[in-house]
Each structure stands twice: as C-alpha cells, then as structure tokens.
Amino acid sequence: MSAVPETASLVTAGRVPASSRPLVRLNGVSKTFSNGTIALKDMTLDVGQGEFISLLGPSGCGKSTALRIVAGLGEPSSGSLDWPTSEHNAAGQPEPEISFVFQEPTLMPWATAFENVWLPLRLKGLPRKAAEEPVMEALSMVGLDQFRDAYPRELSGGMKMRVSIARALVTRPKLLLMDEPFAALDEITRFKLNNDLLRLWQRFGWTVIFVTHSVYESVYLSSRIVVMASRPGRVVSDLAIDAPYPRDEAFRTSPVYNEHCRHTSAALHAAMDGGEHL
C-alpha cells in the first residue's frame, strides 16, 4: 500500500470516550416487516464518535436491518434515530457522511474500478477531471491504483471488495457501515483486509459499525462488541474490547485476545440459548 498524503489529520492517538458525544443514538428502534416478522425489538444503542463497533449475532437476528436503518434505507417501525452532532439538510433530515459497504462488492460490471469509485462523487456532480485526485487516492488506500482501468470481472473477489471499500472511502465518510464485508473471502485475504481496515480507521478517525458472524474477527477489530439475539432481534450484551491499538498479527495469538474471544463466545452462546435458534 502506498503512502497517502496526510490530508485528513484526524489521526487519533487515544480514542474519544464513547459516552461524550454520540455520533448516532438509536432510541428504542423496532422494525416489523409487513409479513409480521419482528426483525428488531426496542434496540437502544449509543454509537460514540471514533468507535469501532461490531454487531455480532446469529443469522437472522436483525444485524443487517439495524445497519440499514442507520443508513436511512428503510424507516424504523417505532423508535427514532438521533444524530446529535450532524448537520441537517433542507428537508430537516440529518445528513451525516455515511458510507455503506455491502456483503457483496456491488460494483457496476460495465464500469472500470475508477468509474465505480467515482460514482458517489459523480452523483454529486463532480466531473471526471475533478474526481481524478480523490478517486486515485481512495484506490491507492486499498492498494489498487494499478488497476484503475480494470473491469470488475477482471478482478479477484478480494480485489472487488477493496474497490467497494474504496468507493465507500472516497466521500470521506464520518460513519462507515459494513455488512459482513469480508464474509465471502478466504482467511488470508480477510486477515489482510482486516489489517488494512484497522490502519485506515486509525488514520482517519472514522466511526465504524461492522456486522459479522465471526467472534474472532469482531474481537480482532473492535473497540466494542454488541451481541444480539434473534426472534425478536435485540441487544443482549455490550462488551468493551479494551486491548490497545494498533493491533497486529501478534495480537491474534496473544492471551489477551484469547481471553476476549472466550468471553465474547460465552456471551454469544448465552444469547443463542436465550432465544430460539437454528
């Protein structure tokens, strides 16, 4: 990965404590689908600025639903979302700079890597020339500046995912929402992208909400893990992972890591035994 100019000097040595000013607050958010499924029930969560939060839970516990509600894709059935620190647009809607990384790369197959990353800026009216610099910067953050003219079909699964991440980064979001972004990747690629993500997060001081099935991945990445249970989807425990950053491969084998994994696993099992599960 090439060096990136330190334009965003948001480098945070010590993380901002979660309690001070939450970026977003979920107030008793519930979501019932038209077929009667209660995907989320009374979810309350403060997402502090600069936190790396993982939503961990069994399949169908409403992780994606929660993430989509935060992203503004679908309204909650009851409860509300507060953005205490964000500006509001003309319609009175909060307009935090949010980016979403889907489980699949979700690239436009007819567009090159460059054009895919350009998309969010293009939709804001930025022409190709003016977008050149931010797009190339985002591509080099994920190590793909050499592949700017490649079409998605010419890229491997991991590379496609990195293009998708570059597209999320190009708007310089405050809040990055990731829905099992690495679930389909092999372990080696996943570890590498985990490290890349952590480094970028530290450098730019984003807030991240990261959905995952994997206890190990969530412990490695997160400053905080929110464990959810299903039917109805709800939060059952909220664990702080207070191991210091930067974390690297040595952390993966450390006793502290193992201890956190054991603890988190236990919380997850308790959550699954509490509700029905598959």
């Binding site: 992203a71 979403f100 979700t106 436009m108 007819w110 567009a111 998309l119 293009r122 939709l123």
Partner: peptide, 29 residues
C-alpha cells in the same frame, strides 16, 4: 437492475434521472 445497486444509488441521493442514466440504462443494455 441489481437491488443492492439501487440501494446504493438511493443512499448516495441519486436523482431519478441519474439512476436511469448511470444504472438502469447500462444494466438494460
């Protein structure tokens, strides 16, 4: 058109015309 891409366009606040031009028409090609 891929629903995830439609969601993406919605999230980035694309207008009807932009969605048609950059997403639906190329997908229909």
């Amino acid at each position: 058109t891929d629903h995830n891409l439609l969601n993406l366009f919605e999230m980035y606040g694309a207008s009807r015309w932009q969605t048609l031009r950059y997403l639906k028409l190329p997908a229909a090609l």
